[in-house]
Amino acid sequence: MSAPDVRPATPGDTAALSRVLGRAFHDDPVMSWLLPDARARERKLHKLFAAMTRHHHLSRGGVEVAATGTAVIGAAALWDPPGQWRHTTGEQLRAAPSMLRTFGTAVRRGLRITDLMKRHHPEGPHWYLAVIGSDPQVRGTGLGQALMRSRLDRCDAEHAPAYLESSNPDNIGYYRRFGFEVTGEIALPDGGPVMYPMWRRPR
Protein backbone atom coordinates (compact mmCIF):
# COMPACT_ATOMS: atom_id res chain seq x y z
CA MET A 1 0.00 0.00 0.00
CA SER A 2 1.28 3.45 -0.91
CA ALA A 3 2.05 6.04 1.75
CA PRO A 4 -0.90 8.24 2.73
CA ASP A 5 -1.28 11.50 0.85
CA VAL A 6 -2.03 14.40 3.22
CA ARG A 7 -3.15 17.72 1.79
CA PRO A 8 -5.10 20.84 2.80
CA ALA A 9 -8.84 20.49 2.27
CA THR A 10 -10.71 22.58 -0.29
CA PRO A 11 -14.39 23.63 -0.22
CA GLY A 12 -15.04 20.86 -2.74
CA ASP A 13 -13.89 18.27 -0.18
CA THR A 14 -16.49 19.24 2.42
CA ALA A 15 -19.13 16.66 1.46
CA ALA A 16 -16.67 13.76 1.31
CA LEU A 17 -14.75 14.60 4.48
CA SER A 18 -17.94 15.21 6.48
CA ARG A 19 -19.29 11.79 5.51
CA VAL A 20 -15.98 10.22 6.55
CA LEU A 21 -16.20 11.95 9.93
CA GLY A 22 -19.85 10.97 10.30
CA ARG A 23 -18.90 7.30 9.89
CA ALA A 24 -15.86 7.72 12.13
CA PHE A 25 -17.96 9.10 15.00
CA HIS A 26 -20.95 6.79 14.62
CA ASP A 27 -20.09 4.87 17.81
CA ASP A 28 -18.50 7.77 19.70
CA PRO A 29 -19.78 7.94 23.32
CA VAL A 30 -20.72 11.63 23.14
CA MET A 31 -22.44 11.37 19.77
CA SER A 32 -24.25 8.21 20.87
CA TRP A 33 -25.45 10.10 23.96
CA LEU A 34 -26.69 13.05 21.91
CA LEU A 35 -28.28 10.85 19.23
CA PRO A 36 -29.12 7.49 20.84
CA ASP A 37 -30.77 6.09 17.71
CA ALA A 38 -28.07 4.48 15.56
CA ARG A 39 -29.99 5.00 12.33
CA ALA A 40 -30.42 8.68 13.14
CA ARG A 41 -26.66 9.02 13.66
CA GLU A 42 -26.04 7.35 10.33
CA ARG A 43 -28.39 9.77 8.57
CA LYS A 44 -27.47 12.96 10.38
CA LEU A 45 -23.93 13.11 11.79
CA HIS A 46 -22.33 14.14 8.52
CA LYS A 47 -24.49 17.30 8.56
CA LEU A 48 -22.85 18.37 11.82
CA PHE A 49 -19.33 17.95 10.44
CA ALA A 50 -20.25 19.65 7.17
CA ALA A 51 -21.54 22.67 9.10
CA MET A 52 -18.45 22.78 11.33
CA THR A 53 -16.16 22.59 8.30
CA ARG A 54 -18.03 25.00 6.07
CA HIS A 55 -18.88 27.67 8.65
CA HIS A 56 -15.74 27.70 10.78
CA HIS A 57 -12.73 25.45 10.34
CA LEU A 58 -12.16 25.65 6.58
CA SER A 59 -11.76 29.43 6.64
CA ARG A 60 -8.98 29.09 9.25
CA GLY A 61 -6.83 27.03 6.89
CA GLY A 62 -6.29 24.13 9.31
CA VAL A 63 -8.41 21.40 7.70
CA GLU A 64 -6.49 18.50 6.21
CA VAL A 65 -7.55 15.27 4.53
CA ALA A 66 -5.67 12.03 3.95
CA ALA A 67 -6.07 9.51 1.16
CA THR A 68 -4.32 6.41 -0.12
CA GLY A 69 -3.34 5.69 -3.71
CA THR A 70 -7.00 5.66 -4.74
CA ALA A 71 -7.19 9.40 -3.93
CA VAL A 72 -10.44 8.73 -2.03
CA ILE A 73 -10.56 10.69 1.23
CA GLY A 74 -10.32 8.24 4.12
CA ALA A 75 -9.57 10.52 7.06
CA ALA A 76 -9.85 14.18 8.01
CA ALA A 77 -8.68 16.54 10.73
CA LEU A 78 -10.22 19.89 11.67
CA TRP A 79 -7.54 22.10 13.26
CA ASP A 80 -7.71 25.75 14.27
CA PRO A 81 -4.54 27.86 14.30
CA PRO A 82 -3.42 29.70 17.45
CA GLY A 83 -5.94 32.29 18.59
CA GLN A 84 -8.66 31.20 16.14
CA TRP A 85 -10.61 28.46 17.91
CA ARG A 86 -13.53 30.64 19.02
CA HIS A 87 -16.59 30.69 16.76
CA THR A 88 -17.87 34.12 15.81
CA THR A 89 -21.53 35.04 16.28
CA GLY A 90 -21.97 35.03 12.51
CA GLU A 91 -20.51 31.54 12.22
CA GLN A 92 -22.81 30.26 14.95
CA LEU A 93 -25.87 31.76 13.25
CA ARG A 94 -24.95 30.29 9.87
CA ALA A 95 -24.36 26.85 11.41
CA ALA A 96 -27.54 26.89 13.52
CA PRO A 97 -29.93 25.40 10.89
CA SER A 98 -27.63 22.42 10.34
CA MET A 99 -27.29 21.88 14.08
CA LEU A 100 -31.06 21.85 14.47
CA ARG A 101 -31.46 19.39 11.60
CA THR A 102 -28.84 17.14 13.15
CA PHE A 103 -29.83 17.14 16.81
CA GLY A 104 -33.46 18.29 16.89
CA THR A 105 -34.60 18.59 20.49
CA ALA A 106 -31.14 17.48 21.69
CA VAL A 107 -29.61 20.70 20.36
CA ARG A 108 -29.90 22.33 23.80
CA ARG A 109 -27.84 19.52 25.27
CA GLY A 110 -25.31 20.05 22.49
CA LEU A 111 -25.09 23.74 23.33
CA ARG A 112 -24.44 22.91 26.98
CA ILE A 113 -21.58 20.65 25.90
CA THR A 114 -20.15 23.45 23.77
CA ASP A 115 -20.34 25.84 26.73
CA LEU A 116 -18.54 23.35 29.00
CA MET A 117 -15.80 22.86 26.41
CA LYS A 118 -15.32 26.63 26.11
CA ARG A 119 -14.97 26.96 29.88
CA HIS A 120 -12.27 24.30 30.00
CA HIS A 121 -10.43 25.54 26.90
CA PRO A 122 -6.93 26.77 27.77
CA GLU A 123 -5.84 30.33 27.22
CA GLY A 124 -2.68 31.23 25.37
CA PRO A 125 -1.68 30.49 21.77
CA HIS A 126 -2.01 26.85 20.67
CA TRP A 127 -3.16 24.71 17.78
CA TYR A 128 -6.58 23.19 18.51
CA LEU A 129 -7.53 19.79 17.15
CA ALA A 130 -11.33 19.98 17.18
CA VAL A 131 -11.96 16.74 15.27
CA ILE A 132 -9.98 13.91 13.74
CA GLY A 133 -11.35 10.67 12.36
CA SER A 134 -10.85 7.87 9.87
CA ASP A 135 -13.45 5.95 7.91
CA PRO A 136 -13.84 2.58 9.71
CA GLN A 137 -13.19 0.82 6.40
CA VAL A 138 -9.62 2.16 6.26
CA ARG A 139 -8.90 2.44 9.97
CA GLY A 140 -5.47 1.04 10.84
CA THR A 141 -3.90 1.94 7.50
CA GLY A 142 -1.98 4.95 8.85
CA LEU A 143 -4.18 7.77 7.56
CA GLY A 144 -4.93 9.17 11.00
CA GLN A 145 -1.30 8.93 12.02
CA ALA A 146 -0.25 10.77 8.87
CA LEU A 147 -2.71 13.57 9.64
CA MET A 148 -1.46 13.86 13.21
CA ARG A 149 2.17 13.96 12.16
CA SER A 150 1.51 16.54 9.46
CA ARG A 151 0.16 19.13 11.88
CA LEU A 152 2.25 18.21 14.92
CA ASP A 153 5.43 18.57 12.87
CA ARG A 154 4.32 22.12 12.17
CA CYS A 155 3.53 22.66 15.86
CA ASP A 156 7.06 21.59 16.74
CA ALA A 157 8.58 23.77 14.01
CA GLU A 158 6.62 26.75 15.38
CA HIS A 159 7.31 25.71 18.97
CA ALA A 160 3.55 25.81 19.53
CA PRO A 161 1.57 23.62 21.94
CA ALA A 162 -1.54 21.69 20.85
CA TYR A 163 -4.83 20.91 22.54
CA LEU A 164 -7.75 18.52 22.02
CA GLU A 165 -10.68 16.96 23.88
CA SER A 166 -10.97 13.19 23.62
CA SER A 167 -14.63 12.19 23.53
CA ASN A 168 -13.72 8.50 23.78
CA PRO A 169 -11.54 7.15 26.63
CA ASP A 170 -10.37 4.37 24.30
CA ASN A 171 -8.47 6.97 22.26
CA ILE A 172 -6.44 8.43 25.13
CA GLY A 173 -3.59 5.97 24.65
CA TYR A 174 -3.47 6.80 20.94
CA TYR A 175 -3.13 10.52 21.61
CA ARG A 176 -0.52 9.89 24.28
CA ARG A 177 1.69 8.29 21.64
CA PHE A 178 1.85 11.70 19.97
CA GLY A 179 2.77 13.50 23.19
CA PHE A 180 -0.65 14.58 24.49
CA GLU A 181 -1.37 14.26 28.21
CA VAL A 182 -4.72 14.33 30.02
CA THR A 183 -5.16 17.56 32.00
CA GLY A 184 -8.56 16.92 33.61
CA GLU A 185 -12.10 15.77 32.94
CA ILE A 186 -15.17 17.41 31.45
CA ALA A 187 -18.22 15.66 32.92
CA LEU A 188 -21.25 16.16 30.69
CA PRO A 189 -24.60 17.01 32.27
CA ASP A 190 -27.52 14.68 32.94
CA GLY A 191 -25.34 11.64 33.57
CA GLY A 192 -23.58 11.95 30.21
CA PRO A 193 -20.13 10.61 29.34
CA VAL A 194 -16.83 12.24 30.27
CA MET A 195 -14.58 14.10 27.86
CA TYR A 196 -10.84 14.35 28.47
CA PRO A 197 -8.95 17.56 27.69
CA MET A 198 -5.40 16.82 26.53
CA TRP A 199 -2.41 19.13 26.10
CA ARG A 200 0.80 18.63 24.13
CA ARG A 201 3.99 20.61 24.63
CA PRO A 202 6.08 21.17 21.49
CA ARG A 203 9.10 18.97 20.98
Rank of each mutant, 00 (worst) to 15 (best):
R41H: 02
S32I: 02
T141Y: 01
D13I: 07
F49H: 14
L100A: 14
Y175I: 00
G62T: 08
T88L: 12
D13F: 14
R94I: 00
S32E: 11
H56W: 05
R86W: 03
H26N: 07
V131T: 09
H57V: 02
D80R: 00
Q84S: 06
G90I: 05
L21Q: 11
T141H: 15
Y174M: 12
W85F: 09
R108E: 04
A106M: 06
L143P: 13
M148W: 10
F25E: 05
M99D: 00
A157C: 01
D153S: 13
T114V: 07
R7F: 00
F49C: 05
H46F: 00
A75L: 13
M148G: 03
H120V: 01
P169W: 03
R109S: 06
I172M: 08
L93V: 15
V182M: 12
E185H: 13
W33Y: 14
R203T: 14
R108M: 13
I132G: 03
P193E: 03
P125R: 12
R39C: 00
D28F: 12
P82C: 06
E185P: 02
F25T: 04
S134Y: 07
M52Q: 11
R60L: 12
A71Q: 10
T141S: 15
P202S: 09
L147Y: 15
E123C: 06
L129I: 07
A146C: 06
